[in-house]
Amino acid sequence: MIPIEFFLIFGGILFAIGAYGVLTKTNAIVILMCIELMLNAANINFVAFAAYNGDVLGQTFVMMTIVVAAAEVAVGIAILLNAYKSKKTTDVDELTTMRW
């Protein structure tokens, strides 16, 4: 059996890539994709722990996460479309009407 550390390191790398993308990218759609990466990193942890603990609780949680992620992207894309209509951009650096 593959040691659990491998899964955790894989999840950690995925999470770090996602977090890096959220902090550095300026296109809102790419940021949403990076958030998906971070959620999937958590899902990998859940499934790995569930397999090693021998219970299904972690897998149940993954179902919840997938549903939530889908709902969030659906609402998020609709909001981006709405913002694109009024601002003609999806670049978060240009959404700066309100500051401080």
Partner: peptide, 27 residues
Amino acid sequence: AEAAVKYVIIGGLSTALTVYGISLLYG
């Protein structure tokens, strides 16, 4: 529109952070 974009991105980031924390706590 601008506020909603900021809210959805920050909210998504917060979701991702909490789920990752919960996964480790579960582990």
